[in-house]
Design a binder for these strands. Structure first.
Length: 222
DNA sequence: ATCTCCTAACTTCGATTGAC
DNA sequence: GTCAATCGAAGTTAGGAGAT
């Protein structure tokens, strides 16, 4: 027998709720709605019956949390025979599961009961939430601490690097200065030598004979 | 009594994608 | 181009609980 597939628009008409409500229920009830090759949800007759049942229960005042619990029970029990699951069986099993859920959650002093006993937040759940929050807070604190630590390290490294670089630049400057000084000295001595030679070259021949190469006055006749 | 806060259950919006 | 679908996020509403 061919299974009929409905798109969300058709399914919403059949169940008589808006499409976004079906999506919302899917999410809240953690239902596994199959997708076609385009990624669009498609619903079978079983899904339609399930959603009709959910709607019916909601109209009776049950919360989605309770319906989810009941649904899980029913799907666990009747899941194998999904195709043949009739409306009567579905309704009967859902009601039985809801009754069980009510009893489970209303008799214990650890539970908070609101209204008809359907909206229940167990202490365990609260403890779990509390633990999660604590983990979150501790995690954040560690995160902040780590961040501060890495900032401190980065500051220290920057400072150290700065000093190191400054020292290197200073040493390099000193070396450079020393090199220039030496170069300057060499140039000056070269210049001195050159000037003396040039001065000697300027003295006239007759003077050279009287004064000699160095320009000193020679004794007559010698 | 009323104000504030919280939660559940939608509802709306905007961006994106694919079919016709 | 229009329509119909997706998703995630943000907004809205109603009702309950606690504080003042």
């Amino acid at each position: 027998m061919d299974e009929v597939h409905y798109l969300i628009s058709d399914a919403s008409k059949k169940v008589d709720v808006e499409a976004h409500v079906l999506r919302y229920w899917e999410e809240e009830l953690e239902l596994d709605i199959p997708r076609n090759e385009m990624g669009h949800r498609y619903y079978t007759d079983l899904h339609i019956r399930l959603f009709k049942q959910v709607k019916n229960l909601k109209e009776k005042g049950y919360q989605l949390k309770a319906i989810k619990h009941a649904l899980n029970q029913v799907l666990k029990k009747d899941g194998k025979a999904q195709g043949e699951l009739s409306d009567e069986i579905l309704e009967r099993d859902m009601n039985a599961a809801l009754k069980e859920f009510k009893e489970e959650n209303s008799g214990t002093s650890l539970s908070t009961v609101k209204g008809d006993g359907v909206s229940v937040v167990a202490m365990e759940e609260k403890m779990e939430q509390f633990q999660q929050i604590m983990n979150l807070i501790i995690g954040r604190a560690l995160e902040v601490n780590n961040e501060k630590l890495s900032q401190d390290i980065s500051c220290l490294v920057n400072e150290k690097m700065g000093k190191e670089l400054e020292f290197l630049f200073q040493a390099s400057d000193q070396k450079e200065e020393e090199r220039f000084r030496q170069l300057d000295e060499t140039l000056r001595s070269c210049q001195k030598g050159g000037q003396a030679e040039a001065a000697a070259a300027k003295v006239p021949f007759f003077k050279r004979r009287r004064f000699g190469r160095s320009g000193k006055k020679l004794r007559d006749g010698k």
